[in-house]
Structure formats: structure tokens, C-alpha cells
Lab assay of single mutants.
Amino acid sequence: MVQRGSKVRILRPESYWFQDVGTVASVDQSGIKYPVIVRFEKVNYSGINTNNFAEDELVEVEA
């Protein structure tokens, strides 16, 4: 279970941040499909630095 402030590695192959490390900004408990919002240092092609992920697409590298 990841929690706010954890450092996580992204396992979603189609993601711009695949294999990159980001910080968990928040975790939604309402039961949505992609409840974990992760914030990154670098921006993607659209200038965005956050994205939603499912918990099984993340691996915690640092608490």
C-alpha cells in the first residue's frame, strides 16, 4: 500500500514516465480505477508533471 509522500517507480509501459521515480501526491479511497496521483520532476510533452496510476502499476522504492 503506497501512501502520500512515498517514492514510487512506474511500471506502466505506455506511460511517459515508465521506469521513472515520482512522489505520491495523494491516494483516493473512493474506489476509482486509478486512485494514486504521482508527481514527477520532469514534465511530459504537454507540460504536465502529474498523472494517475493504479496501485499495481507502482512499486515503492522509498517510504
Rank of each mutant, 00 (worst) to 15 (best):
M1K: 15
M1L: 12
M1Q: 13
M1R: 15
M1P: 11
V2T: 04
V2L: 15
V2M: 10
V2K: 04
V2W: 11
V2N: 03
Q3K: 14
Q3M: 11
Q3I: 09
R4A: 14
R4D: 05
R4M: 12
G5V: 03
G5W: 03
G5R: 05
S6I: 07
S6T: 13
S6H: 07
S6N: 07
S6Q: 11
S6W: 09
S6Y: 09
K7E: 05
K7S: 06
K7C: 14
K7G: 05
K7L: 14
K7Y: 09
K7V: 10
V8N: 01
V8Q: 03
V8G: 02
R9G: 06
R9N: 06
R9A: 05
R9E: 06
R9V: 09
I10S: 00
I10G: 02
I10Q: 02
I10P: 04
I10L: 05
L11N: 06
L11Y: 05
L11C: 10
L11F: 03
L11K: 04
L11A: 03
L11E: 06
L11M: 10
R12I: 05
R12D: 06
R12N: 09
R12L: 05
R12G: 02
R12V: 07
R12M: 04
R12T: 07
R12Y: 05
R12S: 05
P13D: 04
P13L: 10
P13E: 13
P13Q: 12
P13R: 13
P13C: 10
P13N: 06
E14Y: 11
E14K: 08
E14H: 11
E14L: 09
S15G: 02
S15W: 03
S15E: 03
Y16P: 06
Y16L: 03
W17F: 02
W17D: 00
W17I: 02
W17V: 00
W17A: 00
F18P: 00
F18S: 03
F18G: 00
F18V: 03
F18C: 05
Q19N: 14
Q19A: 07
Q19H: 09
D20C: 14
D20H: 12
D20R: 07
D20K: 09
D20Q: 13
D20P: 01
D20N: 09
V21Y: 07
V21P: 01
V21I: 13
G22K: 03
G22I: 08
G22D: 01
G22E: 03
G22Y: 08
T23P: 00
T23R: 04
T23V: 13
T23Q: 07
T23N: 03
T23S: 04
V24P: 01
V24E: 01
V24W: 03
A25W: 12
A25M: 15
A25E: 15
A25L: 15
S26F: 14
S26P: 01
V27I: 14
V27L: 07
V27R: 04
V27C: 06
V27M: 06
D28E: 09
D28A: 09
D28F: 06
Q29N: 12
Q29M: 13
Q29V: 11
Q29G: 10
S30L: 05
S30W: 04
S30I: 04
S30F: 06
G31M: 09
G31E: 10
I32L: 10
I32V: 13
I32P: 07
I32Q: 10
I32K: 10
K33Y: 08
K33G: 06
K33F: 06
K33E: 11
Y34D: 02
Y34P: 02
Y34E: 04
Y34L: 07
Y34T: 03
Y34V: 03
Y34G: 04
Y34H: 09
P35K: 10
P35G: 09
P35I: 10
V36N: 02
V36Q: 00
V36A: 01
V36G: 00
V36M: 03
V36E: 00
V36P: 00
I37A: 13
I37W: 15
I37S: 13
I37V: 14
V38Q: 00
V38K: 00
V38G: 00
V38Y: 00
V38E: 00
V38D: 01
V38S: 00
V38H: 00
V38R: 00
V38M: 00
R39M: 13
R39V: 14
R39Y: 11
R39A: 09
F40R: 00
F40L: 00
F40D: 00
F40W: 01
F40M: 00
E41F: 07
E41I: 08
E41P: 07
E41A: 10
E41V: 08
E41L: 08
K42E: 07
V43L: 10
V43A: 14
V43K: 13
V43R: 13
V43D: 07
V43Q: 11
N44Y: 05
N44D: 14
N44M: 06
N44W: 08
N44F: 05
Y45A: 15
Y45C: 15
Y45T: 14
Y45K: 15
S46P: 05
S46C: 15
S46D: 15
S46Y: 14
S46H: 14
S46R: 11
S46A: 15
S46K: 13
G47K: 03
G47E: 03
G47M: 03
G47A: 03
G47D: 04
G47L: 02
I48P: 03
I48G: 07
I48C: 15
I48L: 13
I48Q: 15
N49C: 14
N49I: 05
N49M: 06
N49Y: 09
T50R: 05
T50V: 12
T50H: 11
T50E: 12
T50S: 10
T50D: 04
T50L: 09
N51E: 15
N51T: 10
N51S: 15
N51Q: 15
N52S: 14
N52M: 10
N52P: 07
N52H: 11
F53Y: 07
F53T: 05
F53N: 03
F53S: 01
F53P: 02
F53R: 01
F53Q: 00
A54F: 04
A54G: 08
A54D: 08
A54Q: 07
A54R: 12
E55N: 11
E55Q: 13
E55Y: 15
E55D: 07
D56N: 12
D56M: 07
D56T: 09
E57M: 03
E57G: 04
E57K: 02
E57R: 01
L58W: 02
L58N: 02
L58F: 06
L58H: 01
L58M: 07
V59G: 07
V59Q: 14
V59L: 12
V59C: 13
V59H: 08
V59K: 09
E60K: 10
E60W: 09
E60Y: 10
V61F: 05
V61M: 07
V61T: 06
V61L: 09
V61H: 02
E62W: 11
E62C: 13
A63M: 12
A63E: 12
A63V: 12
